[in-house]
């Protein structure tokens, strides 16, 4: 099979380019540790409270150390449970100081959901039977909308909350 000289250049450059892309991605993933969410922990979807993180009192934001937080979320059709405030009302908005490290843990008792703080790199699938987790450093102040981005039923677009990263 004959290849034109220029086609050899083109395919050569293309293949080298793709390899360079892969090396950059691989370096970011396996050396710097920025993987997409791939947590493997399982949970009984009909008994999520068996896992401490998803007991009603542990839902929402908890400060564990200076600049370190855990955010436990239960996604269900059609609501994000971010815990309750002192008066018992459901929390919809969360505030975190800029520069904090946050471990987000989420699961669902029903169907598949998406969990995305729009505009951040916190974006993961939430599936029955699994705990999804992601740890990120929030450096850019601003308001980020929490949206369900995987179709979960007719009220899918009514699942939301917000995250404020404050100076």
């Amino acid at each position: 099979m004959h290849l034109h000289k220029y086609e050899k250049y083109w395919l050569g450059a293309g293949i080298v380019g793709l390899i360079v892309f892969l090396i950059i991605l691989g370096f970011g993933a396996f050396y710097l540790g920025t993987h997409p969410q791939s947590h493997g922990e399982i949970i009984d979807p009909e008994n999520i409270e068996a896992n401490d993180a998803f007991k009603p009192e542990n839902r929402g934001l908890t400060k564990v150390d200076e600049g370190r937080y855990v955010l436990n979320i239960v996604a269900s059709a059609f609501n994000y449970d971010l815990g309750t405030d002192e008066s018992g009302a459901p929390i919809k908005n969360i505030e975190i100081p800029a520069g904090s490290k946050v471990l987000v843990q989420a699961t669902t008792p029903d169907v598949i959901h998406g969990l995305n703080f729009a505009g951040t790199n916190i974006n993961m699938m939430v599936e029955p039977g699994y705990v999804s987790t992601m740890e990120v450093e929030l450096n850019n102040p601003g308001e980020y909308t929490l949206v369900c981005n995987e179709y979960c039923g007719v009220g899918h677009h009514l699942m939301y909350g917000s995250l404020e990263v404050v100076e």
Binding site: H4, Y6, E7, Y9, W10, A13, G14, G17
Partner: peptide, 12 residues
């Protein structure tokens, strides 16, 4: 195929 080479370079 000079034009082709330039075109695919732009694409790249």
């Amino acid at each position: 195929l000079k034009g082709t080479l330039i075109s695919v370079s732009i694409l790249g």
